[in-house]
């Protein structure tokens, strides 16, 4: 069964005739038009437009009220990841990437350090601001791939978490 991953939540679903089913219900829909970052979909009695863009981290959906990055995982993706059960599905953000091109001003952690969610790992200067690059989870620091003074590109890996 393929799945989508939103934050730490994994939702498996099954594509079926005229829609899909997932843990929690069924969804009957018809895609009327698709292309360049949007779908026009009839969902029951509702007509919806789903606007999205593809990013290195997944698909970013610009849905009413919020913005969410979703990963689509095919059966093969799930196998590759070695998923054993729903329990182990919690993805670890194993790499901290540069959110924008910039200059590494300082790396504040060493390999082997344990860090808490929200700790600053490095300082990246861009847009005339010193931006604190933080971790979004408790982790142990693995390889550090940059040094202060390095110029990095957007999405370049800075630190690997274990």
């Amino acid at each position: 069964m393929p799945a989508i991953e939103i934050g730490r939540e994994l939702i498996r679903f099954n594509v079926q005739n005229g829609g899909l089913s997932y843990d929690g219900g069924e969804l009957n829909f018809e895609i009327l038009e698709a292309g360049s970052g949007r779908l026009l979909v009839r969902v029951g009695s509702e007509m919806r437009e789903i606007v999205y863009s593809d990013t290195p981290d997944g698909i970013m959906i610009s849905a009413a009220g919020g913005k969410t990055t979703v990963r689509v995982l095919s059966n093969r993706d799930l196998l590759l990841r070695g998923f054993q059960s729903e329990q182990s599905a919690h993805r670890s953000h194993s790499e901290i990437k540069a959110p924008m091109p910039g200059l590494v001003v300082k790396v504040l952690v060493n390999k082997g350090d344990t860090v808490k969610r929200g700790s600053t790992l490095a300082i990246l200067e861009a847009m005339k601001m010193e931006n604190e690059i933080r971790t979004t989870q408790d982790a142990e620091i693995g390889d550090i791939l940059v040094r202060s003074g390095d110029v990095v590109e957007k999405d370049q890996t800075l630190v690997v978490l274990r």
């Binding site: 393929p2 989508i4 939103i6 934050g7 939540e9 939702i11 679903f13 594509v15 899909l20 997932y22 969804l27 829909f29 895609i31 698709a34 779908l39 979909v41 969902v43 919806r48 789903i50 999205y52 698909i59 959906i61 849905a63 009413a64 009220g65 919020g66 969410t68 979703v70 689509v72």
Partner: peptide
Amino acid sequence: LSRRGMEDALILASY
């Protein structure tokens, strides 16, 4: 995620 957001994500994924 709102229910609507999750539904949209599922539809998009199946697409």
